[in-house]
Amino acid sequence: MTQNYKHYMVPGILVALMTIIGTLLSAQNIAREKELGTLEQLNVTPITRGQFIIAKLLPFWVLGLVELSLGLIVGVLVFGCRCGAASCCSTASRASTSPSRSASASGVSTLVETQQQAMFVTFSSSTFTC
């Protein structure tokens, strides 16, 4: 088996992509609602805090999966990565792991007041962790 640099980097870059996009977008989301003032309207509805956070995360979770599928397709077609039956397993495992990032993002966005703050916090944490 030959070791190919591209085959080594593509899975890693996929992770970085999912992490950064997932974190940034979900953190921006709540911060934007705060700026627009629509968050107050949500706060007066009888939903619990947990329901609110999970409902905010789910769309980005789906977005992350779409992004991952797109990345896998590019990885196979352009960079010639081998992924057969393993890709199903891969998708399933990532499906459940990406909430970790998104959840931290929502944690960030409950702390900050503006989108700019949210962006700075997520960007610095991403540079540190990636």
């Binding site: 890693g12 992770v15 393993a86 397993c89 891969s90 792991t97 990032r101």
Partner: peptide, 29 residues
């Protein structure tokens, strides 16, 4: 968490690992 994510990703896409091999980083995540 990103470290474990990278571990899982490489294990699956490069080494063709199954659920048993990625169980530990997966549970941590």
């Amino acid at each position: 968490p990103v470290r474990h994510f990278v571990t899982i990703s490489r294990a699956i896409l490069m080494k063709g690992a199954g659920p048993a091999e990625i169980a530990q980083p997966f549970l941590i995540l």
